[in-house]
Amino acid sequence: MPQNDKKLPPCAQNFLKGRISGNPADITLHRGSPFELTGNSVTFGSDVYLAGNTFGRSDANALIHKFHEIQHTSQNARLGLSTFDHIAAYVVFGGHDASPYEQAADTFADDAYKAYKAAGLDKTCPF
Results as ranks from 00 to 15, higher is better:
residue 1 M to R: 11
residue 3 Q to H: 09
residue 5 D to I: 13
residue 6 K to G: 06
residue 6 K to T: 14
residue 9 P to M: 10
residue 10 P to W: 08
residue 14 N to L: 05
residue 15 F to R: 08
residue 16 L to A: 06
residue 20 I to V: 13
residue 21 S to P: 01
residue 23 N to A: 13
residue 26 D to N: 11
residue 29 L to Q: 01
residue 37 L to F: 10
residue 37 L to R: 13
residue 38 T to Y: 07
residue 38 T to C: 06
residue 38 T to P: 00
residue 41 S to V: 03
residue 49 Y to E: 02
residue 50 L to E: 09
residue 51 A to V: 01
residue 53 N to R: 15
residue 55 F to Q: 02
residue 56 G to T: 13
residue 56 G to H: 03
residue 57 R to H: 08
residue 58 S to N: 14
residue 59 D to Y: 08
residue 63 L to I: 14
residue 63 L to D: 07
residue 63 L to Y: 10
residue 66 K to F: 02
residue 66 K to Q: 12
residue 66 K to G: 06
residue 66 K to V: 10
residue 68 H to E: 11
residue 69 E to I: 01
residue 71 Q to S: 05
residue 74 S to T: 04
residue 75 Q to Y: 04
residue 76 N to W: 00
residue 77 A to T: 03
residue 77 A to P: 00
residue 81 L to E: 03
residue 82 S to C: 05
residue 90 Y to A: 02
residue 91 V to H: 07
residue 93 F to A: 11
residue 95 G to T: 15
residue 96 H to I: 15
residue 98 A to M: 13
residue 98 A to K: 10
residue 99 S to W: 03
residue 101 Y to M: 03
residue 101 Y to G: 02
residue 101 Y to T: 01
residue 102 E to A: 02
residue 103 Q to L: 15
residue 105 A to C: 06
residue 106 D to C: 05
residue 107 T to M: 02
residue 108 F to L: 10
residue 113 Y to P: 06
residue 118 A to Q: 13
residue 119 A to H: 01
residue 120 G to A: 03
residue 123 K to Y: 07
residue 124 T to S: 15
